[in-house]
Amino acid sequence: MDHLENLENISIHLLREAYANFKNLCMLWSIGKDSTVLLWLARKAFFGHVPFPLVHIDTTYKIPEMIQYRDRLAGEWKLMMIVGKNEEALEKKETFPDGSVDRIACCRNLKTKALVSTLNGSGKRYRYNHHTNRYEVDKNTEPYTGVIVGARADEEGSRSKERYFSPRDNRSEWDIGDQPPEFWNQYKTDFAPGTHLRIHPLLDWTELNIWEYIDREKIPTVSLYYNQGDGTRYRSLGCWPCTFPINSESRTVTEIIEELKSGQLKNVAERSGRAQDKEDGGGLETLRREGYM
């Protein structure tokens, strides 16, 4: 059994463990490569089906290709697609592109707050209707108690300290200093009312593993990851005002794998194109403690 197969087995085990233990379970899908691999692993774990909703937080500033790709796969793979937004902040124009707040505050408004209210059901959830191909307000407002997230330990500092099953308190906050023990394939699946758990099936994967797996399984990805001829590509996807491409000639999955293996990007952080990271003192710890993915 090779390393990728091992990683795949662990992730499938964790997904099934989450499904067995949480009645109100959902998976966050950012449209990026990691959460798309996670979605693919879910189809493997559940033999072609995805038996829980996929939640996407739409800041309305996502690169348009991302949204087209999302709705295409939602239709093709029969996904229970849920979209959440911070409509209040958008209406009041409390965003960085509107010039009223800085990048961190914008992330907090459009991502963290939108996510927290979508998860606990206090914010509107829009559900994809497979007959009309439209999003409609979802009647289900029950809080999600298990949230599957595609975070990887090698991405940045605070994520490397994560557990597979990571508790969040009733304000969605993360106590990084006192995390539960986790051993022998036994995880924290018991939780007090009002709290929820984040589940991280991709914790052991590296950026290279993700691309090798995309290659092996032929998983469809957004074209933004590839150089379209101008010598640049996105290495990490986000909102257009705060996400910048890197210089790279890679046009295909194979070329990205070669590029990563060659060490050309060894001293460039994967999220170097994400402007908000730099404003958060380097890491994402502040945002993540508050509930950011």
């Binding site: 991405e155 500092g157 300290k161 952080a269 994967e270 170097s272 990271d277 003192g281």
Partner: peptide, 21 residues
């Protein structure tokens, strides 16, 4: 270094030999 976004962690350090990772 990791707080600046590079992928080495205090709890886990990666290295490889010709034999394995």
């Amino acid at each position: 270094e990791q707080s600046q976004g590079i992928t080495i962690d205090s709890a886990r350090v990666f290295f490889k030999t010709t034999k394995r990772d």
